[in-house]
Amino acid sequence: MTTIDDTSTAGPSAVVPHATPVLQARGLVKTFGRVVGLDGVDLALYPGEVLAIIGDNGAGKSTLVKCLTGAEVPDQGEILLDGEKVHFKRPQDARAAGIETVYQTLAVSPSLDIASNLFLGREVRRPGFLGKVLRLTDQAGMRESARRELRELGISTLQDVTVPVENLSGGQRQAVAVARAAAFGSKVVVLDEPTAALGVRESGQVLELVRTLRDRGIPVIIISHNMPHVFEIADRIHVQRLGRCAATITPQSHSMTEAVAIMTGAAQA
């Protein structure tokens, strides 16, 4: 029952087994006092795939993602981005390296408009004296880029980028958050429970958006409790249990019931 079979080191069982992982973690250990959050986790994210991370509460999903996105610094182990070792001390480091995270608590500013939210924290200045000396931002340019980005992502319901985000529905806000993560040439997009607060149709829109990201070549890590969503969207599923990777499965190789069994320790992969 309690034996943990770590299969992820052998490489993924599907999709693109020969490519170099975009993002890879080896032997990540993270302890909080006497509590072991991560106990030697390996993870690999390959180009053009959607990797879901599932696991029971306390299995280490959040800690794993926090280590990958710079919100926590692992005690041991290494993280490789495009095969190169990286050390993230802060979330900004991971973002600068191209790992964008959409947090469960949407990091959008409700009273700012859509365009301002897309560019929040990396505003574009106007060229010449106005931008360099007076530090004025290029409003028109940012709005145009925002429109283009949303159109390319197929978010047709967001026509007017000057609308404050608080006037949007939950799904649209999630779409803004995802669009922001995808907008700046990012290498990896991490979504933490993107459908947790959404209704059926809005969840569908967000999952569609995830597919669009993947089709544009951006690999996505998605953390979710929602098994139907995970099985609908994921190419591979990383099952986290007791601080380790219990198995890496695919929606084809295992059923939902089997996945839950691995997650709870009732079965092995």
Binding site: A107, S109, L120, G121
Partner: peptide, 11 residues
């Protein structure tokens, strides 16, 4: 508006 959101946006 939202301090935490601002922080997560890199501000």
């Amino acid at each position: 508006d939202d301090k935490d959101a601002a922080r997560l946006s890199g501000i």
